[in-house]
Design a protein around this nucleic acid. Structure first.
Lengths: 196, 196
DNA sequence: GTTGTTATATAACAACGTTATGGATGGAGC
DNA sequence: GCTCCATCCATAACGTTGTTATATAACAAC
């Protein structure tokens, strides 16, 4: 009894791809709806029909970005040495951020202060650090790490890689600094015995 | 032989105060020149005469913010125990970020990816971590920290506090996590002897 | 076909950063 | 003291942004 929809999920996917590309290139701040819609061969109305508004589209882009980031983390094989796993996950974490600076910037920079997160966005965020969280739990269970609160250890390691990634992207890394060694020190800080 | 200037340094200061206030409240992204100029009782032209353009004004705001941040770091008294100093500086670092979330966000978030830094901005940035850098040097000299590259240790500790601050601001801190303990682990990671 | 309802593209609107414009200003020259 | 006129700056205009209103288009029911 009405006109059939043409703003389908397929159009949403096209829009999403164009938007993700634009954000990865120019950052989350500059995302002109007109050019995005034009590139996706539709009109700006589609954005409002499918994502609500610009902020909704930004949220969707960030959710997608977190998903791809989590996929990358999950490429790391799980071994029976949680400490090695943590080191590998950390290195991968930083590398992804370096490879996708604008995306990572948007994920952990402006996103927090600016737009209010949706349910899916929060979930996607959790998945991004799930592997590290798991590895820390195994390190604690195996006795490789001294007894400590799981959340505290996770935050310590997460802050380390997140901070390293951000500083490196910003060009703040002083000459001669070794990020891998820097991260390793934080891991060692949790060792049960002083093995160095 | 010409009309005297009214776009004086005093006007620049008024503009700066209004802009800093606006950025601290709404973030670096939303800084409407018209309303800033109106609040400073001048016109938008003054912004272009005194700061070049909006980006110049943003740079100036960030430089000022870094200055205030560095002032705060320098409030911490220097003792003869560098490790205690580092812990205190780190706690102060995180606290300032929590107290000025939009400012810190602007300083280390968008600023890097977006606008190109000026000379003064780069200097102001360096001053912000000068105290931590000094304390690390003393910790290395005194033998409290095991022999390591100064820049690497600085980056490790800096990344830790920066990461903690960012994650806390973003509400990413898991329940039960103790940021002070988390930071302390990174410090311990550099201890010469396993004193815990 | 006509009508009713929904969907969409287009055009209009307000706000933004930036640039042009034209009036205002006050010492220099007489 | 009067006229320049180089200089400065508030105002208005321009292009682009996100968003909303409007009018057209497309189908189902009668």
């Amino acid at each position: 009894m009405a006109r059939p929809k043409t703003h389908t999920a397929e159009v949403a996917e096209r829009l999403m791809e164009c938007a993700l590309e634009a954000v990865a290139r120019d950052g989350i701040g500059s995302l002109p709806l007109r050019s995005i819609a034009e590139r996706a061969e539709t009109s700006t109305t589609a954005v409002y029909a499918l994502f609500g508004n610009k902020e909704g589209m930004q949220r969707a882009v960030l959710t997608r970005a977190f998903g791809e980031f989590a996929d990358d983390q999950e490429l790391i094989e799980v071994t029976d040495d949680p400490v090695t796993d943590i080191a590998g996950l950390g290195a991968h974490y930083v590398q992804w951020a370096i490879d996708h600076p604008r995306l990572y910037e948007a994920m952990y920079g402006e996103a927090l202060a600016g737009l209010t997160p949706s349910e899916e966005l929060s979930e996607a965020r959790l998945r991004a650090v799930a592997r590290i969280s798991d590895a820390v739990q195994r390190a604690l269970d195996s006795g490789a790490f001294r007894p400590a609160d799981h959340a505290t250890v996770v935050v310590s390691l997460w802050a380390q890689v997140h901070g390293l990634a951000t500083l490196m992207m910003a060009g703040h890394l002083p000459d001669g600094a070794d990020p891998a060694l820097a991260a390793w020190a934080t891991i060692e800080g949790w060792f049960a015995d002083a093995r160095r």
